[in-house]
Amino acid sequence: MSQSKTPTIVKCPTCQTDVVWGEESPYRPFCSKRCQLIDLGEWAAEEKAIPGAPDLSDSDGWSEEM
């Protein structure tokens, strides 16, 4: 019995274009190098972030010294 697999289609995170998730889409999940670079630029400019616990590094003004 031969079953043809239906390709997985995802939306480009930048422009919402349909993208086939496979070898024929080298920039997946993005549709193009342009959309990939736009997304990278947003992360580099800190326009995007993953929510998490606050940073408790030395830059918060707290010190162990008395």
Rank of each mutant, 00 (worst) to 15 (best):
M1W: 10
S2K: 15
S2A: 14
S2R: 15
S4C: 09
K5P: 11
T6W: 03
T6D: 11
I9W: 00
I9L: 05
V10D: 00
V10P: 02
C12H: 04
P13F: 10
T17I: 12
T17E: 14
D18F: 12
D18P: 15
V19F: 06
V19L: 11
V20H: 11
V20S: 11
W21V: 14
W21F: 11
G22H: 08
E23F: 15
P26N: 13
P26C: 08
P26A: 08
P26Y: 02
Y27T: 15
Y27Q: 07
R28G: 09
R28C: 12
R28F: 05
P29K: 10
P29W: 07
F30R: 02
C31E: 03
C31W: 02
C31S: 03
S32R: 04
K33T: 01
K33M: 02
R34N: 09
R34K: 10
R34G: 09
R34Q: 04
C35M: 08
Q36T: 13
Q36K: 15
I38W: 11
E42A: 03
W43G: 15
A44L: 14
A45E: 13
E46N: 08
E47V: 03
K48T: 05
K48M: 10
K48Y: 13
P51I: 10
A53F: 07
A53Y: 00
P54F: 11
D55L: 11
L56T: 08
L56M: 14
S57V: 06
S57A: 08
S57L: 09
D58L: 11
D58H: 06
D58I: 13
D60T: 06
D60V: 07
G61P: 01
G61C: 02
G61K: 00
W62M: 02
W62P: 03
E64I: 02
E65S: 03
E65H: 06
E65G: 03
M66S: 11
M66P: 09
